[in-house]
Amino acid sequence: MADTHQGETRRDFLYVATAAVGAVGAACVAWPFIDQMNPAADTLALASIEFDTSTVAEGMAVTVKWRGKPVFVRHRTQQEIDEARAVPLADLRDPQTDAERATKPEQLIVVGVCTHLGCVPLGQKPSDPKGEFGGWFCPCHGSHYDTSGRIRKGPAPRNLEVPEYQYISDTVVRIG
């Protein structure tokens, strides 16, 4: 009786061990098939761009393409900077100071994708509506952004995203 019992335990252990090893193997096989859908090496190699901000005149804005999305580079006027800095943090839905959002006050660099549902806000061209706060206005669902790209009115939950960037010379910035 005891023998049979022991035999069965050993048998169960074998089945469990085999199934467990098989499950580990299946997981290892699954990974390459999942990972192949991630960005490939050549895509990642293009993940950062360099841009010369001296090409943007004061008061003007330029849209550059970065990782398939528009990036707004705006050369802000002193008035726009002052406006952005004067806003009390308590008035903001997504509180951030302007200094946190712009390494150099005169150059604002944000991803031009509305944080509501992904439309591209208007406000780059001089003729565009800039919304009630002088920044950008998203025509899809009426989000208003200020001169620091912060959400002030409308359905969007967050400020326009600031991409990771650094100045590699006085005027040339590397985004990404």
Partner: peptide
Amino acid sequence: FLLVFTGLLYATKRK
């Protein structure tokens, strides 16, 4: 890995 796994499968099959 496959050598170990196949060994286990063989033991399972025998059992």
